[in-house]
Design a binder for these strands. Structure first.
Lengths: 170, 170
DNA sequence: GACCGACAGTTGTTGCGTCAAGTAAGCGGG
DNA sequence: CCCGCTTACTTGACGCAACAACTGTCGGTC
């Protein structure tokens, strides 16, 4: 993957990947590359939503009052604040989301799901869940799912050391 | 994730995700969202390369003669042909890659690594491998790596049913 | 009680990916 | 041998994300 194996002089602290690690990594990265496209096209086709837009609405739909501070929403959706801000603007234009200034902290903004947005999530969810099942859950055994959860939790711990994201342990 | 659990009427063939499946899925998708950014920023910072650009050069570096047909390269890098074409243009402008018409089939184009490109891969590889290790391999046990490979192979089979990508079983 | 650093969001620019055409070459039948 | 279909790629337009810069607010300090 990185260089001709015969070339590696292994001088100092350079640790390459073992064949097993390399094989796992290549499969993993292929999935990481391909999965977003699959999710996006189903949602784009069936609901004219990107996966990130859908996910944002879905997270909001689970929050108390279907409302969350922008910062909290950004953390829950694994996004940066600028990214969320742009997406919120689009969703607001389409009537799925409303932004209101937060009374307690006037720097902050509350994002909440509108009735339309709530309806959109409900009608869109089944098709999306079917896609997720078809693409990743169904081919896996129970044990696979458990392994996947365990492994991804470990990796996420490295990608996000401060636990900014996924603050809810669930 | 999708809708308030209390709402689901489970009318016909609508199968929701079990709590275990949902938890695994959420972790997985968080990683899928976060990982590309981590890979991209390291490579961008240290080599002024996106991860996909690096990966393209790396795949080429392993090919016989460090040369591959565009279609084959696209398949190996899990990319569409237009995407690869654009990336090849950029890499060509920077002198890392050369495109030459294929003599056997004049519709086809061969992409090959230049000496500069080969050098670039060699100097860039160690830092990239270190990042991959740090972000995903090192926190995993041997068993985790085996599980990851097994699971991703299964998922990849669904995302890419015709095995257009990863044609080499490696 | 006025400053100063940190925090919460928004906005603009730049670059990459996708989708839809378009070109050009191979391939097969009548 | 030529017509149409398919394959192999390239190109242009458009949309979304990253990054950086900016506005406005809060908290602590002197």
């Amino acid at each position: 993957m990185v260089a001709d194996q015969s070339v590696r002089g292994e001088p100092a602290g350079e640790r390459w990947l073992t064949p097993d690690e390399l094989a796992a990594w290549k499969k993993f990265i292929a999935v990481v590359e391909l999965l977003p496209g699959v999710l996006d096209s189903q949602l784009q086709h069936d609901a004219e939503l990107t996966h990130f837009e859908y996910f944002t609405l879905a997270i909001l739909s689970e929050a108390p009052n279907r409302t969350l501070r922008m910062t909290a929403l950004a953390a829950s959706t694994n996004a940066t604040l600028p990214r969320l801000s742009h997406v919120a603007s689009r969703l607001e234009k389409r009537g799925y989301l409303a932004r209101t200034p937060c009374p307690e902290d006037r720097r902050a903004t509350n994002a909440s799901l509108t009735a339309e947005g709530w309806q959109k999530v409900r009608t869109t969810a089944p098709g999306h869940v079917a896609t997720v099942r078809g693409a990743v859950i169904d081919p896996l055994t129970r044990q696979d799912v458990a392994d996947l959860g365990r492994i991804m939790t470990k990796v996420l711990g490295r990608l996000d050391p401060e636990n900014r994201f996924q603050s809810n342990g669930e």
